[in-house]
Nucleic acid binder design. Structure first.
Lengths: 215, 215
DNA sequence: GAAGTGGCGTACCGTACGGTACGGTTCGTT
DNA sequence: AACGAACCGTACCGTACGGTACGCCACTTC
């Protein structure tokens, strides 16, 4: 299945990566600016080369999104010795990483592109972004939550529900407002509050799911 | 300012509303299907009329989104005699309405369209959707939260924060996954869980912000 | 140094679509 | 009945863009 494709650095030659960078830049600058001619000019390559490497416009778009989305790196969290302090630190780390990613220009562009794509019965990009964004986080966070439950630090009936609550507490309405271009929510504006938001989200999550013993 | 424009039923004649309905249908069926020719054919009108009524394609798009977005009606909540039971009912009502709206095909389409639009430095549609979606809910919910605080039913330092937490607890990752076309999240699938999700969100919100006296 | 290969730049083609023009029809007004 | 406004249907124009073809250069390989 296409989703299982692993995209490592060797998938694209440096030259190809330069092309993809150009494509991403154009996407960021102006969502619909990704015309084959524009990419070719920006990357100083010929259109013929683009078609040779990526097949067609959709292929180029997919490659760009896939390549960038795969760059999102999840923080590594030590789950060997879990205590309440380490758990809180882990949660904050996840929240911080999630917020920082979501706020970024690249993430906004990728999500917008994928959503536009999904609006046309083609959900390739949507799945790629999902897989590398929310789902990747879920895969990393869930085992930690379950380990914490086993260690009697958390209590919840359903780890899926717990994860989704965490996601909601962290992201709130930030992502949708950024995607919609809310002017009252500048990037720097959000970034300034990340630390306090991260802490608040972790506090709230622990209030909801932590066992009472923990202050 | 454009945002302040009130769109009531008299803004558009019935014939024009029929055109807008056709436009919306095309949008829902296929995001990029809104071509002037297609709308004209679907609505059995001439392109010339479209341009006469709506100026250009963007005008038609804006009119469609504005007209539909304004149709989202917020539930009226009686805030005269607030007790914990009434508060919980209000919260659940808001949550239910929010979820029901978000899950709807029309809402998804409108949000996708506005996001696509926002990706091209034009944030008109984004603001319209924001104003009629999240912001409308905020305007309605905030006074209730503050009334509940005054009645010592809730405790929070900042009503804005409380509102955003509520939004996060209710929406979680549902909206972004729907916008991205997540196949693992069908509309009916979500709808079936709305009631339990609504209850869970209200419980969690009250756990976080309710004063202890309330069980 | 001849031959082959990869890739740049440009020119070109076809189509889709935004926007305009115009003839014909219906319908309301006088 | 005569007029005019509104509007439908269709034909048309210009442009932007996806995709292709080709000539030329640079660099490798024998």
């Amino acid at each position: 299945m296409a989703l299982a494709i692993k995209v490592n650095e060797e998938t694209f030659t440096p030259r190809q990566q330069a092309v993809l960078t150009a494509a991403l830049d154009l996407l960021v600058e102006n969502g619909d600016g990704l015309t084959m001619t524009a990419v070719a000019r920006r990357a100083s390559c010929s259109k013929e080369t683009l078609y040779k490497w990526f097949g067609d416009r959709d292929g180029l778009l997919t490659a760009t999104v896939q390549w960038q989305a795969a760059k999102v790196r999840m923080p590594f969290v030590d789950r060997s010795h879990l205590n309440i302090k380490a758990l809180r630190a882990s949660l904050e780390q996840f929240a911080r990483d999630l917020l920082t990613t979501i706020v970024g220009e690249v993430s906004i562009t990728l999500n917008r592109t994928a959503i536009t794509h999904a609006a046309q019965e083609k959900d390739d990009l949507g799945n790629i972004v999902l897989e590398n964004g929310p789902m990747a986080i879920r895969r990393r966070l869930k085992p930690i939550l379950e380990a914490a439950r086993d260690a009697r630090l958390l209590r919840f009936p359903n780890s899926e529900e717990a994860y989704r609550t965490f996601f909601g507490l962290v992201v709130r309405d930030v992502q949708i407002r950024l995607l919609l271009g809310d002017k009252g929510l500048t990037q720097s504006n959000v970034e300034a509050n990340i630390e306090s938001d991260v802490k608040a989200a972790a506090d709230q999550f622990l209030t909801l799911y932590g066992v009472k013993a923990n202050s």
